[in-house]
Amino acid sequence: MKRKLLGVIDATIYHEDLEDLLVHRPLAALPFGGRYRIIDFVLSNMVNSGIRSVAIFPKMQYRSLMDHLGSGKNWDLNRKRDGLFFFPSPIVDSDENKVGSFEHFAANIDYFYRSTQEYAIISNCNTISNMEFRPILEWHNEAKCDITEIRHQDGRSMEMYLIKTSLLINLIETRHETGYTCMKDVVTDLSEKYSICHYEYKGYAVIIDSIDSYFSTSMKLLDPQIWKQLFLKDQPIITKVKDEPPTKYIKESIVKNAMIANGCHISGTVENSIVARGVKIGKGAVIKNCIIMQKCQIEENCHLDSVILDKDVRVEAGTYLVGTAHAPYVIRKGTKQGALMNS
């Protein structure tokens, strides 16, 4: 089984509504849950499903993604055979929301020629789930499908496709004759000769494609019922290991229903929030319903509610920032936010 599935992750996807968080990084590398990146979920799903060869197809600004994944060691993908592969897209004017561009694949067709795996799972990079692909492969074979599109139980496509590697190669090679540009074109063509099946996934799954979905999905991690569906002992979500000291809480600090990563210094109040590594929160500061990314500094007596702070943001003393659950206040990476700016 370990040699049957090939993993293909499309990391070229871009959504304009997430622009404020994607200025310096691809969507795949967007921080999530205080210590993860969004791509960790689909990549971990593949590794937990016995996949030992994974190709990642990024487009632009992928340095942070490569820095996060490295050689794939944390996912046990730093191998002499198979392993983790990066194939940056040479295509500038491609549709960034079509998963699995055949033109992009064609530019790296040798990877598919050399693959020994009989089947390939093609996925987007921005689905939050904990999914096992092996039962889907068994279902695919029993149903005698040529292509299986994985759908959520509400009928939405999860932008994941299971296909024989040989058929994928054929679709890539004949793309100009057929007019197909990606997997979606194939599965939505009603006249297509292939047997197209739809697998209904009944577990928890969300595609991050907007600030609203990013914020709401992040906040749901604070719900133990959601947490238990995503973070399973036997199917861990793996991420880059960083050795940092424990978080320090001073005596006056108050923390309620929050996820706090390592290396933080908490002197204020944190409620219903997710705080990443190395964050400093000053005395008298009140943080509610917020996502605070790595190495942010929030000085004394600030009040933040429904706010997303990207990495390395500094919020000066006395600053008051308030958003809403459906329109959180977003501060871009590396900027300074002061009380005078918001008065």
Rank of each mutant, 00 (worst) to 15 (best):
V286H: 13
H176A: 11
F32T: 03
P26Y: 01
L321Y: 03
Q294Y: 02
D185P: 01
I136D: 03
R3E: 11
A285W: 04
W139N: 08
M293R: 01
I169D: 06
P90M: 07
N48W: 11
D17N: 15
Y214E: 03
T116M: 04
F105Q: 06
T319Q: 02
I163G: 01
Y180E: 05
H24M: 12
Y199N: 04
K248Y: 14
Y14Q: 13
G179H: 07
E192Q: 13
T165A: 13
H303T: 13
I169P: 04
Y119Q: 02
M1A: 12
D212V: 07
P26M: 01
S191R: 10
M46N: 07
E316Y: 09
E132D: 15
K202S: 15
A106F: 14
I211Y: 02
T239W: 12
L321N: 02
V47W: 02
K220N: 07
D189E: 06
I298G: 00
K283Y: 09
N78W: 09
P135H: 12
K202V: 14
G34V: 03
V241T: 14
L162P: 01
I291D: 00
L21N: 04
M183W: 03
S89E: 05
I150T: 08
E173P: 01
K4W: 03
I238V: 14
E96I: 05
H198M: 05
L22H: 08
H68S: 12
G284F: 01
K4T: 08
D189P: 04
Y161N: 04
V255N: 11
I39F: 05
D189W: 03
Q153P: 01
G282Q: 05
H176D: 15
Q337R: 09
E300G: 05
I308H: 08
I207T: 13
Y180Q: 06
V206I: 09
N301A: 08
E192S: 14
I91C: 06
K311S: 15
V99G: 00
H152F: 08
G323F: 02
S94I: 13
E16Y: 15
S213E: 11
G7K: 03
V275A: 07
K280M: 15
A143Y: 10
R314D: 06
H303C: 14
I150P: 02
Q61I: 13
Y14W: 08
L340H: 13
I207C: 12
Y204G: 10
V330S: 10
K98Y: 08
E159H: 07
E271K: 14
R25F: 04
N48R: 07
V92L: 12
G282S: 08
M66E: 11
E103P: 00
L137R: 02
K4I: 02
N130C: 14
E177C: 05
V99P: 00
A106Y: 14
T335Q: 10
G278Q: 11
M259Y: 08
F105S: 04
Q297P: 00
T247S: 15
R134P: 03
L5M: 11
F32Q: 02
S49A: 13
E271Q: 15
D234A: 06
S49D: 09
T127P: 03
S49P: 07
R52L: 12
K336F: 11
F57M: 09
G83C: 10
K98V: 11
N108I: 06
P328N: 07
T335N: 09
V313G: 02
E149H: 01
L309C: 05
A317Y: 05
